[in-house]
């Protein structure tokens, strides 16, 4: 493992921040302080963290309705994210986008997305830009197993493979498309096999294991950057929470969820791995836990105190110049 102590601590900080951020949102929605459709990333933290650890500002990420984790891992300011979720003018989208449209183009974050599969061609286009402009950047599309049943997925993979674009397609296979088990609607066991139709390289990672994702994403991103073409990376993972906040979860067995939560939690796994190998001290991790909580609490206070967008903003930014 080529990670330094600082890099390991940074990875843990990202994992913890995503977890704590989502738990905080759950709390805020349940308390009636936040509205909209919220889809939590709890359980899948190792995927965004493992992949984005290899990315810099020149690289692009396109995300999904379950996008908070990708944003955090890509370096979007959590204060601006929290403000967005409160619908404030200081939010990433000036309060006009909300959970499913958090974006930060300066950070290479092309947005969460309310349309299943729609981020896949956006990342493909970002890879085309990077290639034609010679920026050395790569693009990563994160999407769920459900999105691989969309035409946009297949059409994008075909073009990207044919053009050898610097893009990595990361499918977060969490076993459910919304409420429906993946095996109800997909005849293949591994989504990764779908790459075969496009002569594209594929790989399967344990999405609950930061180190496995880190290693396999690293190789895929290295190849993309070197002009060796795209990879479809399937990360097997699990959504600890519901499809959205408020989902009663009646459609999945409790023992199944308990098993994943008790035995395969990516944060507990990371902690066990790094402590066992004596790479960091437990105190380091607890200090990060504490710092993350403080940072989040401050973000909530700031967001609540921030001004909402003025009513005139209803009509701004419909077009690049002038109002509608």
């Amino acid at each position: 493992m080529d990670l330094t102590r600082e890099e390991l601590l940074e990875a843990y900080r990202t994992l913890r921040m995503i977890r704590a951020f989502e738990e905080k949102l759950n709390e805020l929605v349940t308390a009636g302080k936040m509205g909209g459709f919220l889809h939590l990333y709890i359980g899948e933290e190792a995927v965004a963290t493992g992949v984005c650890s290899h990315l810099g500002v020149r690289d692009w990420v396109a995300s999904t309705h379950r996008g908070h984790g990708h944003c955090i891992a890509k370096g979007v300011d959590i204060r601006a994210m929290m403000a967005e979720l409160f619908g404030r003018a200081t939010g990433t989208s000036r309060g006009k986008g909300g959970s499913m449209h958090i974006a930060d183009v300066q950070q290479g974050m092309l947005g969460a997305n309310g349309i299943v599969g729609a981020g896949i061609p956006l990342a493909t286009g970002a890879a085309l830009s990077a290639k034609l402009k010679g920026t050395g950047g790569v693009a990563v599309a994160f999407f769920g197993d459900g999105a691989t049943n969309q035409g946009q997925f297949h059409e994008s993979l075909n073009m990207a493979a044919n053009w050898k674009l610097p893009v990595v397609y990361v499918v977060e296979n969490n076993g459910y498309g919304e409420f429906t088990p993946t095996d109800f609607v997909v005849p293949v066991k591994d989504i990764a096999t779908r790459a075969g139709s496009y002569a594209m390289r594929s790989e399967i990672a344990d999405g609950m294991d930061f180190f496995d994702v880190y290693e396999k994403a690293g190789e895929a991103i290295r190849r993309a950057r070197a002009g060796e073409g795209p990879t479809l990376l399937e990360c097997k993972t699990y959504r600890f929470a519901g499809h959205f906040v408020g989902d009663p979860l009646a459609y999945r067995a409790k023992e199944e969820a308990e098993d994943w939560i008790q035995n395969r939690d990516p944060l507990a796994r990371f902690e066990g791995q790094v402590l066992e190998a004596a790479l960091v001290e437990a105190d380091d991790l607890r200090r990060i836990d504490h710092d993350v909580e403080e940072e989040l609490a401050a973000a909530v206070v700031d967001a609540e105190a921030a001004p909402p967008p003025g009513l005139e903003e209803l009509l701004t930014d419909v077009y690049a110049r002038g109002e509608s």
């Binding site: 619908g87 309060g95 909402p308 967008p309 009513l311 903003e313 209803l314 009509l315 419909v318």
Partner: peptide, 16 residues
């Protein structure tokens, strides 16, 4: 509604 996308912020949505 105005010639604009639907905003997220509650007050803006109400105004929409």
């Amino acid at each position: 509604a105005p010639h604009a996308p639907v905003p997220y912020n509650k007050a803006l949505e109400d105004a929409y």
